[in-house]
Simulated assay, not measured.
Amino acid sequence: MSTPAADGFRMPPEWARHERTWMAWPGPNFTFGEEGGGTLAAARRAWAAVARAVRRFEPVTVVAGPGQAEGARALLGADIDLVERPLNDAWMRDIGPTFLTDGRGHLAAADWVFNGWGAQEWARWDLDEKLAEQVCRLSGARRYATGLVNEGGGIHVDGEGTVLLTETVQLDPGRNPGRTQADVEAEIHAHLGTTKAIWLPRGLTADYGQFGTRGHVDIVAAFARPGTVLVHTQPDPGHPDHAIGAETAKLLRASTDARGRRLEVVEVPAPTVVEEDGELVDYSYINHYLCNDGVVLCGFDDPRDEEAAAIFRRLFPGRTVTLVDARTIFAAGGGIHCITQQQPMA
């Protein structure tokens, strides 16, 4: 059986040009509550704000549940494409496909197994596990199915052979019981076209809560360009993420990428807010989204929002940085990167 890598496909870096962005529309479920409730209404407003921010730079397609497109249109506006397909949840980064290109004008996608972030007891995924295949059809991408349980938020690539992973995600017994690190790497490389994996030991503390992903990398570290990686750091030494950020930065500074370069680490301080309603939060600017000529950056109405924006403006001088309030999205278990998925130009 052929693999994407064997057929010449690879996952481009997020800063490569996009054809469009895919998103999913929040519907009634355990995370957002019932139709007509305030939590679901707030989530829809937050998702719409991100979709409109991305639409300034590139086309956007939003997948809504059956019968929900008309309501979504009222919040999204006329210039965002809408399609209706059955959904359980709204995290397109994780339930959608990971798009690939071959440099010869062809589009493909890796369709990972999705099982509710490690078969978490509250999660339902009977519909979401089929969505990547449907998005492949809608986009015209050649689909490569894999038996590896993985989510798009659990990987980050530099486009030159390197991928970031987290031990508590791909090696999670709830996701891939019995698979070794070597097994996972082989499957990842075969489907992303990468050749070197850098493993982080764990994610942020709050990401192991009820609606957490058990350590997605895209809230901890992300490539900004080949050889340069952004890392979430917590300045407060009393916060449990202080040690995690320091460990992550140290590990990455000691690492080389697939081309043998020693990595440059850019530390991005966490927002000052560490709790909401007595619960620890994992607010992070790392969970941003790069779109054509733009950076859509998580905002938290926090004194460090502008400090983070300045870091991103320096790193991406040709892009417009847009802050979008992400607190409602984080309350549901993720951020801006988690609800978007790029389709690269083939």
Rank of each mutant, 00 (worst) to 15 (best):
L204T: 14
V265I: 14
V273K: 15
H232P: 01
D207C: 03
E267P: 10
D7R: 13
V54K: 10
G116N: 08
A108L: 12
H191I: 08
D282L: 03
D241K: 05
Q134K: 15
D305T: 05
T162S: 13
R137L: 12
T320Y: 08
V265C: 02
V83I: 14
D293F: 04
H239W: 00
V296H: 13
P97W: 04
H288A: 07
L280N: 05
T228I: 12
D236N: 11
E151Y: 05
Q170H: 15
P4V: 13
V265Q: 01
A221F: 01
F114Y: 15
G260A: 10
E306F: 07
L82S: 10
P177T: 10
S139C: 10
K130R: 15
G193A: 03
V295L: 09
F30D: 06
V324R: 13
T21C: 14
D79S: 10
R55T: 01
V163A: 13
E151R: 08
L87I: 02
R259I: 09
P271E: 15
P226Y: 01
N176F: 03
R143S: 10
I336Q: 07
Q181N: 00
R214K: 12
L280Y: 08
G178I: 01
G105Y: 10
A224I: 12
V149G: 02
H239A: 04
A48W: 00
